[in-house]
Amino acid sequence: MTPLLSAHGVTVRYGSLAALDGVDLRLELGQRHALIGPNGAGKTTLLDVLGGRTRPAAGRVRLAGRDVTRLGPAARARRGVNRIHQRPAGWPTLTVRENVLVAALPRAAPTRRWWPGGARRAAARTTGAMLERVGLAGLGGTLAGHLAHGQRRQLEIAMALAGRPRVLLLDEPAAGLSAVEVEWLVEFLRVLPRSVAVLLVEHRLDLVYALSDTVTVLRDGRTLATGTPAEIRAAEPVRQAYAEGVA
């Protein structure tokens, strides 16, 4: 079967350092795929390549069989590949509702395409639903720049989902969240519809094992192993990599 999103022999170099060195990865429809590995393994770089932010020096990226290697982030977002951004939460001088609305617009699906304002109404419907879903419905009128850290993560998730993604790329979504917020996040990802495939970069192995059905281990820019959580837990090289790398 053709994977939904796949990397084939992807290489990215920073000067003499190969951040990624011939990496293959398959993300299947509806999969919960975790990407783990020590610091500097190339996980973020791989998400950058899959999201279109970094163009690899060698290798290809395919989305549902189609070569998208040369497409930038905007074109990939329009094709349903969304990234959860960590650094800024959307657009700080816009309200929470406006943020989600803007994120929803490019892929808003009006019921009648030729009807003026249809896209906006569809986007507004999506916006309301997403704010409910992430629990920000009460904060629709707040400026995004005034949100607390955990709420920003919720906003980013709402924005990503408003773009009706087929693929969600998450880079350490639990970083900086309180225990309660992490619990919320895990529950949220657990009930996320299977129409969305998730590629999750996460250092916390408890979250990885709780959420994923497939795990890929990356080290020094190469894939070390891919398997079910149970297989990965048992694999010797993985333990070694972690013993050396991460606490």
Partner: peptide
């Protein structure tokens, strides 16, 4: 309208707007 909204968003963070799929 929506036009103004998109322009304000672009002024806040253009790269983020692109990442959402907008043709900035």
């Amino acid at each position: 309208t929506r036009v103004g909204l998109l322009l304000r968003a672009g002024r806040d963070d253009e790269a983020r707007l692109r990442a959402s799929g907008h043709r900035v």
